[in-house]
């Protein structure tokens, strides 16, 4: 056993981070850094997996075969993204099944946006355009995150996500240019998903307890408020272009700063949903739990089949 000095290890670790040298699984890292990543990456994985539910809801009711094939491919991508991320969590020494059990017991969180229902087909447009749009804002800087496996997973995810947002915007564009009923449906979806999408970036910087440490470790590259502002600036002109109205009477463009100013977010609603009191929290976790329980026999059969094949090969 080599003689190691904890302060010296920490100093070398931070030096690597400061010089933009990635941290890889077998490198020494402070325990807090490891725990922060396990928490963040597993919750990110859960968000991808739970995120399949509101969209899966519409696969069988897509208006035509093209839309159905696209939605199916998108939902399959989300499953893949969840798997990349669970693999990244495992490189930190966490047990994949334990993290999933934490989701099912309510101990681990996932993105609150998925606790809102998808009531109409237009919601598939709003989710792709706004929810995936906000997710991309968050995920692009994560491609430069200091932890190698997380950064690499994010590169794959971002490449795949870009079609997700486009297909959503395409749905909204078509509906907004359709009959008055279709346009109203698109506007209604925007009305319901706008504010929850802004909440996806998390609490204001002043309230965000993890931000500073995560920035020092270069897990995060921008604060919540910076990312939220980038999202608003990018999205408002898109809504205008297709003739939809952002449901915020306080929204206005500030010529001096070059940014949009927007109204106060309803943080009470945000915290209620985080605490588990959103419209669909219970349904989402129940659905995940049921999927695991109902799939038990499949996993057992696969394990038994693998054992049988191994025996046959040996004999």
């Amino acid at each position: 056993m080599k003689e190691v000095n904890l302060d010296e290890l920490e100093r070398k670790f931070q030096e690597k981070i400061d010089n933009d040298i990635k941290i890889e699984p077998k490198d020494w890292m402070p325990d807090d850094y490891r725990q922060t990543l396990i928490r963040q990456i597993s919750q990110h994985a859960h968000s991808e997996i739970v995120g399949m539910l509101p969209e899966g809801n519409w696969i069988t009711r897509a208006p035509n075969l093209r839309r159905k094939a696209v939605l199916l491919a998108k939902v399959q991508d989300e499953a893949g993204h969840g798997l990349y991320l669970y693999s990244a969590v495992e490189t930190l020494g966490a047990d994949r099944e334990d993290t999933i059990d934490d989701l099912h017991s309510g101990k681990a969180k996932y993105s609150s946006i998925f606790n809102y229902p998808t009531l109409t087909w237009a919601d598939m447009g709003a989710v792709g355009w706004l929810v995936d749009g906000a997710a991309i804002m968050n995920q692009v800087p994560l491609c430069r995150c200091s932890y190698g496996p997380y950064a690499r997973a994010m590169v794959r995810v971002c490449k795949e996500e870009s079609f997700h947002q486009r297909q959503g915007f395409e749905i909204m564009t078509k509906l907004a240019a359709g009959t008055p009923e279709q346009k109203a449906m698109a506007q209604d979806a925007l009305n319901r998903f706008w504010w929850p999408s802004l909440m996806m970036f998390g609490p204001n910087d002043a309230e965000s307890k993890h931000t500073q440490q995560s920035m020092d470790w270069k897990i995060k590259r921008h604060t919540n408020d910076e990312l939220r502002q980038m999202f608003v600036d990018a999205t408002v002109p898109q809504a205008e272009l297709i003739g939809l109205t952002i449901p915020d009477p306080d929204l206005k463009f500030n010529e001096e700063t070059g940014h949009y100013e927007f109204g106060e977010i309803n943080w009470d609603e945000f915290w209620e949903v985080v605490k588990g009191n959103g419209p669909c929290n219970k349904d989402r976790v129940d659905a995940r739990r049921k999927a695991k329980e109902d799939g038990e026999w499949v996993r057992e059969a696969a394990t038994a089949y693998a054992a049988k094949r191994k025996m046959r090969k040996a004999s």
Partner: peptide
């Protein structure tokens, strides 16, 4: 990347689905 699978056959199939969708 990595993944979980019961045996080598399933590992190949899962790898195809997870890492070569495009």
């Amino acid at each position: 990347g990595s993944l979980r699978a019961a045996d080598e056959e399933m590992a190949i199939e899962n790898a195809r689905d997870v890492y070569t969708r495009r």
